[in-house]
Design a binder for these strands. Structure first.
Length: 687
DNA sequence: GCGATCAGCT
DNA sequence: CACAGCTGATCGC
């Protein structure tokens, strides 16, 4: 839960995600996403009164957040005062101090935060420096490096302060399985249950918060079964969510709620009251998404843990893990970092101790010999008081971006995409910095950029042709495994505090054969036809599916913003929420037309990491036998036909087009897309 | 009657 | 267990 007070030291007349107390005097308000703990005071009478008096005060948020907010009548009074800002579109805002009449311009940029629909981070650029407020976020390793607007040309912007979501900034949360892994674990569990009969239903025990939508949409899309929810009018203008949820109870996947839903479940009823179809009792399992974390990445990590006869816990997180946070911050390297959250069982001091070494001031102190000329002034910690007024001396800092070695006219607009971006969460600072610089550098700029420590990597990335051996050698199984070497395992202290894998052993002992594991990037599922009671009786066989993202669509959480052109009413271009194509152009969900939708998904979803599915029957020792479930295999086959991610320029790639794609991807070093293509290439045997 | 806060409980 | 948020009790306005 956020404990951010609402104001940043640099721009204390702005209020973010808090609307009470001192924040009542703010000149402008910002809402990062629609979760209640970020909306404190937002509907209070005192703020309502303030709005009535101060007609120039506005609330800035993403278009999706605006839509979700205004769905509730309680916030209707905001309607004419909300300014929906396009994501990834720097926007100048003029702030008027009503007392003094003085005006100040500030540029704000919304960056997708991957936390829930509409969630964004706010990047502010103004006279007191560039600051980033992350709100809540879940970004995978390397995603900061892919955010164009965090960069000036080829370099990361000089960021004075980051106000950081530190929910899991504790070594105990060292690793959390990726979205893809979690989704696929849940997908296979749900699939294996609901295919047993039409009376087998799954209840997803989701909290009321926004953030599970991508789970619903992907389950629906993959399985052709819509998800029953209590309410869906908030998605009326978000067709790609709306299509996959329903208020019709006659479906096999439910995420409906009831205040006493556990009582309902005990009575073999769903929270919506459904208890049978055609007089046949339902076979219900409950799946509760919750955060599970792992101190070590090498151990078996169960995505799904059976917690009872018909109940499962599934890994799911809206927040970045410890290592993801460190990767993010270590890439940005602000001068200051301020935690928005003190994790449970930790203290603010502990969090700062972890984060400070990733900040610029720290690294410059420890390694002055790598400091570029001119950074001395910059690196000096600015004395920013809480009031922040009268700090005009900071202005020239922003006007002299010393890290820009490249003249502005040479600045590439291309997104710096780099595998190396995942290499810096800790460890040798100077080397990591070098890797960043080298690999994020567009070709056109390289000739003007000389930095000896980077030259090795530079040469490599300058090659005309794809470096195939590198790609094929790379571990293509998981997105963050690639950072294995750079990312130190938890320290002894960390390890001591890490959640031991024993946690899962305990659960495993309940049902050794019923875990869904992410070890070696695979999930294993086993559901017996007898239902949960039979689970223990088939300990000799489990169904393993290789890591797959299988059409997993996270685009509405993460990206693609600037690319989307179609719009739905006032929701235009809000891509981190969705691809705003009206559904009648997509004809989703069943049959071949499904592929169109999936292909579109992948266009905006390069790093979702789609890989082809392979189902393999194995014994408990994970020895591969051979193909199992014809149903699953059919699914796998059909989906593999459109697992090839498309570039904006490309149609569905045919084998003869793949070589071009290879080239394209090779130069962009887009890891996940690449691995998909490699998988397809391997399996199609066309190359 | 409403809001703020807290305990308890998912 | 851990993500967010509801309900109910209590207190003050």
């Amino acid at each position: 839960m956020s404990s951010f007070g609402g104001r940043m030291r640099e721009y204390p007349w702005l209020s973010l995600d808090r609307f009470d107390r001192e924040n009542l005097r703010a000149r402008a308000y910002f809402l990062s996403h629609c979760h209640k703990d970020h909306m404190k005071g937002l509907r209070a009478p005192s703020l309502k009164r303030r709005l009535e008096c101060s007609l120039k005060v506005h609330l800035y948020c993403s278009p999706v957040t605006k839509e979700l907010l205004l769905t509730s009548p309680k916030y209707k009074f905001w309607e004419n005062r909300i300014v929906a800002l396009e994501v990834e579109t720097p926007t100048q805002i003029s702030l008027l101090d009503e007392a003094s009449g003085e005006k100040e311009d500030i540029v704000v940029t919304l960056l997708p935060a991957g936390h829930c629909p509409g969630s964004v981070m706010f990047l502010f650029q103004g006279p007191n420096g560039t600051v980033l407020y992350t709100g809540d976020f879940r970004l995978a390793k390397g995603e900061a490096a892919r955010m164009e607007l965090l960069h000036s040309g080829t370099r990361v912007k000089d960021i004075q302060s980051v106000y950081l979501d530190t929910t899991f900034c504790d070594p105990r949360f060292y690793q959390i399985p990726s979205r893809e892994e979690c989704l696929n674990g849940i997908l296979e569990l749900v699939r294996s249950w609901i295919t047993l009969s039409r009376y087998h239903v799954v209840w997803l025990n989701c909290k009321a918060a926004y953030g599970y939508e991508y789970l619903f949409t992907n389950l629906s899309e993959e399985l052709g079964v819509k998800v029953h929810v209590n309410k869906l009018d908030m998605f009326n203008n978000m067709p790609e969510i709306l299509y996959h949820v329903t208020t019709d109870r006659h479906t096999q996947i439910h995420a409906c709620r009831h205040p006493r839903d556990d009582d309902y479940l005990r009575g073999n009823r769903l929270p919506c009251g459904m208890t049978s179809r055609n007089g046949t009792p339902l076979r219900i399992i409950s799946v509760k998404p919750s955060t599970m974390w792992f101190g070590e990445r090498t151990r078996k990590t169960n995505i799904i843990v059976r917690t009872g006869e018909s109940s499962y816990r599934a890994c799911f997180s809206f927040h970045s893990s410890y290592s993801e946070i460190k990767d993010f911050l270590g890439y940005i390297r602000p001068v200051n970092v301020y935690p928005n959250v003190v994790p449970m069982g930790s203290t603010a001091d502990e969090v700062v101790k972890i984060l400070k070494p990733l900040c610029k001031s720290y690294s410059i102190k420890s390694e002055p010999k790598y400091k570029p000329l001119g950074t001395l002034k910059r690196s000096k910690t600015m004395d920013l008081t809480d009031t922040g007024e009268g700090s005009d001396d900071l202005f020239d800092t922003e006007l002299t971006p010393v890290r820009h070695k490249i003249p502005k006219h040479q600045v590439e607009t291309r997104l710096p995409e780099t595998k190396a971006s995942s290499e810096n969460s800790d460890g040798n600072d100077s080397e990591n910095r070098g890797s960043y610089k080298a690999t994020t550098m567009p070709m056109s700029s390289q000739v003007d950029f000389i930095d000896c420590e980077e030259s090795n990597v530079w040469q490599e990335s300058n090659a005309d042709m794809p470096q195939w051996d590198v790609f094929f050698k790379r571990d293509i199984k998981t997105t963050d495994d690639s950072s294995e070497n750079e990312d130190h395992p938890p320290s002894s202290i960390d390890a001591g505090r890490s959640q031991s894998p024993n946690l899962f052993s305990d659960s495993d002992s309940l049902s050794d054969s019923t875990h869904i594991s992410s070890q070696n990037s695979s999930q294993s599922t086993h559901i017996s036809e007898q239902g949960s009671q039979g689970l223990d009786s088939q300990a000799d066989t489990v169904l393993i599916t290789s890591q797959q993202t299988h059409g997993a669509d996270f685009s509405f959480l993460n990206k693609g913003g600037s690319r989307v052109t179609a719009s739905v009413s006032h929701m235009d271009n809000q891509t981190e929420s969705h691809r705003w194509k009206p559904l009648d152009q997509n004809t989703p969900c069943t049959g071949n037309t499904d592929s169109d939708l999936k292909r579109k998904n992948q266009e905006t979803n390069a790093e979702a990491g789609d890989t082809q599915t392979q189902n393999t029957l194995v014994d408990v020792n994970n020895e591969k036998l051979k193909t199992p479930n014809p149903e699953l295999e059919r699914d796998s086959q059909s989906s593999s036909d459109f697992e090839i991610p498309s570039t904006p320029e490309a149609e569905l790639p045919r084998p003869d087009k793949l070589h071009c794609l290879y080239k394209k991807l090779a130069t962009r070093k887009e890891d996940c897309s690449l691995k998909n293509i490699l998988d397809v290439a391997y399996s199609s045997k066309d190359l």
